[in-house]
Amino acid sequence: MSQLGLNAQLSSSQQEILKLAIQDGLPLTSQPYQTIAMALGVAEESVIATLQDWNDSGLIKRFGLVVNHRRVGYRANAMVVWDVPDETIEHIAGHFTRAEEVTLCYQRPRMLPKWRYNLFCMIHGMDRGTVLGQIASLVERHQLEHIPRDILFSYKQFKQCGGQFAGSALPAGVSLG
């Protein structure tokens, strides 16, 4: 990247390097985008503009503090899986999407005969009892008693990190210090 236009777009290889440079988070410096820009040898404005583009296009889902649920007291985490008739999945997922206690809701394929469930949602709570209460309330509020379901509490966290871009490393010499 030259010193020519400050708003010049990053090349695709520069964009790949930028992804790697920020996947572990922004530096805690007064001008973090400038810190990254200097490490990459590009203009701060280009870094900010690229991130803005990624934000607008949805490549970045959200941008901010990534909280470790357990460390703020939310120790119970249940993956609730449902075997929903395909024709009503949208309707039922709609209930979950509007429910405050549900943090994520995804459709995934059934793997018959070993796995029958096609709708997954995630519920976090202070403790197991709270989460079970939230699930019971969800079932009751939306009359889901007849939907086969299973509750998979997590009991150990082996790894929680932001999605890493696998098989990649920053080029030699690029470091955010």
């Binding site: 920020i22 996947q23 991130l51 959200r62 503090l65 990534v66 470790n68 460390r71 932001g162």
Partner: peptide, 21 residues
């Protein structure tokens, strides 16, 4: 204190590449 793991972007890996549970 590991209350936050980082400050930064959370990428949508369906758009950034491929991913699966």
């Amino acid at each position: 204190e590991k209350i936050i793991t980082r400050v930064g972007p959370v990428f949508d890996h369906r758009k950034a590449g491929a991913s699966t549970l």
